[in-house]
């Protein structure tokens, strides 16, 4: 059965409908979940989409991490079910401490709206479990604060534990280690700056987002089977 995936909506989110549409295309039953929700136990996976949650006031994700839904997202993550943060959603997950590091202003202080190449580094995450390492994907990026930052110790650990999920082929924003996406220790929580949901049709310039979203949907279905 198609897994039920929640797509969190904060005031200021703006990619939620694209994510729902892309997840449905990838075989899920996706639905919007307001950030005031406190129970996500009926969901097999959850996506925190892009946008400007709570206006990005203070720092991207700084206010959103205290939204009621985030406790439920944390619970879902701890239960081993797949959690994905895209762009602003990645920023929210780092602020919430579900992923290591932080996203800083881009090197060069420019908002970047472009299509870039990213390489799949690890198949250990729910986003890439069905995609071979070395695969290069063309995905859109659209951010001002996408400069992944962590200390040397964290970087060494991420590399040693195979938790760098995606790397930029040509680093556009100054990210440490060219990192475009990382996962937690268990591999079920993933964050990335590029927007796979905007790359699901060749007509729109790229369909390279589909394999990773399909992988995420398959992982959600697998987690549903385990829980059932």
């Amino acid at each position: 059965m198609a897994p039920r995936i929640g797509v969190v909506v904060f005031p200021g989110s703006n990619c939620e409908h694209d994510v729902v549409s892309a997840l449905d295309q990838a075989g899920a039953r996706a639905e919007l979940v307001w950030h005031g929700a406190t129970d996500l136990s009926g969901f097999d996976g959850v996506v925190v989409p892009g946008g400007f949650a709570h206006g990005d006031y203070l720092r991207p994700g700084a206010i959103a991490r205290f939204s009621p839904v985030m406790a439920a997202v944390g619970e879902l993550a701890r239960s081993g079910r797949p959690v994905l943060g895209i762009c602003n959603g990645f920023q929210v997950l780092t602020e919430a401490g579900l992923l290591p590091g932080a996203l800083q202003k881009n090197r060069g202080l420019r908002f970047i709206c472009d299509t870039v190449e990213v390489e799949v580094v690890s198949s250990r995450s729910v986003l890439t479990r069905d995609v071979a390492p070395g695969t290069v994907l063309r995905l859109p990026i659209n951010h001002f604060e996408g400069n992944y930052t962590c200390d040397d110790e964290t970087l060494t650990r991420l590399v040693a534990e195979d938790r760098v999920v995606l790397r930029y082929v040509d680093n556009p924003n100054g990210s440490t280690g060219d990192i475009a996406g990382v996962c937690n220790e268990a591999g079920n929580v993933v964050g990335l700056m590029p927007h796979p949901e905007r790359a699901t049709e060749e007509l729109l310039g790229s369909a390279d987002g589909l394999p990773v979203l399909t992988s995420f949907v398959a992982a959600s279905a697998a987690s549903a089977a385990v829980t059932a």
Binding site: L58, R59, A62, F66, T94, E95, P100, G101, A102, Q104, T149, C150
Partner: peptide, 8 residues
């Protein structure tokens, strides 16, 4: 808790 992100 809020004003600073202790990671950076």
């Amino acid at each position: 808790r809020l004003l600073a992100n202790p990671v950076i």
